[in-house]
Amino acid sequence: MAFRARHLLGIEQLAPLEITTVLDLAERYVDLNRRTVKQSDVLAGMTQINLFFENSTRTQSSFELAGKRLGADVMNMAVANSSVKKGETLIDTALTLNAMHPDLLVVRHAASGAVNLLAQKVDCAVLNAGDGRHEHPTQALLDALTIRRSKGRVERLTIAICGDVAHSRVARSNLILLGKMGNNLRLIGPPTLMPPGFAELGAEVFDDMREGLKGADVVMMLRLQKERMDGGFIPSMREYYHRFGLDAEKLSHAKPDAIVMHPGPMNRGVEIDGELADDINHSVIQDQVEMGVAVRMACMDLLARNLRAERGRRIVETLV
């Protein structure tokens, strides 16, 4: 099998073949999810804990649904209002949960690298559901699946990632994944929201939307992370929308059949025009949500297989 990872911490650790493996399996789950009876039993008997240190409705429900459709027992830990507020450290929370023998741990945390740290301390498979400004691997995988289904491939495409790149883990994971698969990548945004060094990764950097969108097959908009702004990155929302918000006019510079993506939740009228977001000729934003559940099912399925194999090996070792 072409998926070796024990945890899914980031796209950085995945080889192109592993990415393709996830996408292929996810296709099967897309079909399953469209049936009336959506039940599978690949995670039957396993326990999945969703540990969200940052509030999230969309990602958490997507993971919850994915786990339930695969037959896992799913528990949501609302950490934002629990012992963490009483001063418990991340490691202690991890050890406490570990003692309950979960099999899959889905974690979101506000600090970059926090999920990697946690993964070192537990025996189960850990899925990164977003850590700080670092990675959000399932988002990049679901974006790749959306692109592949819409464009027929996820290679040799011109893909523009636009907006608040600096504060975006989605941008990082996508940049790595789409780069690994051999696409022509562009980053567009105000220079204050463009982290240094990304040009060295092979992406072209633009601060003009029309120039950057020229001939693009895929336009990925990023959420303007208002809650993360210390302030002073952009002069105002309205100037941002004027220069970097995606509307029909700016999109006209991309290829006529270009697709528009957004990881959600959208700020309509800030980074994307509301009508454009709903335009079925371009927008695949709803598809992304659908692919999200399927990709997460595929990831958990693959990690569970590796977990079973590893535990099996351990049992054999104790017998020999």
């Binding site: 950085e12 970059s112 690298g113 850590d131 700080g132 400004r133 670092h134 990675e135 883990r169 990082r172 982290p195 240094p196 060094g197 990304f198 060295e200 990764l201």
Partner: peptide, 11 residues
């Protein structure tokens, strides 16, 4: 220190 490494790590 700012640069490619810090940007990739999101720190």
């Amino acid at each position: 220190t700012s640069g490619k490494f810090a940007s990739l790590r999101g720190l």
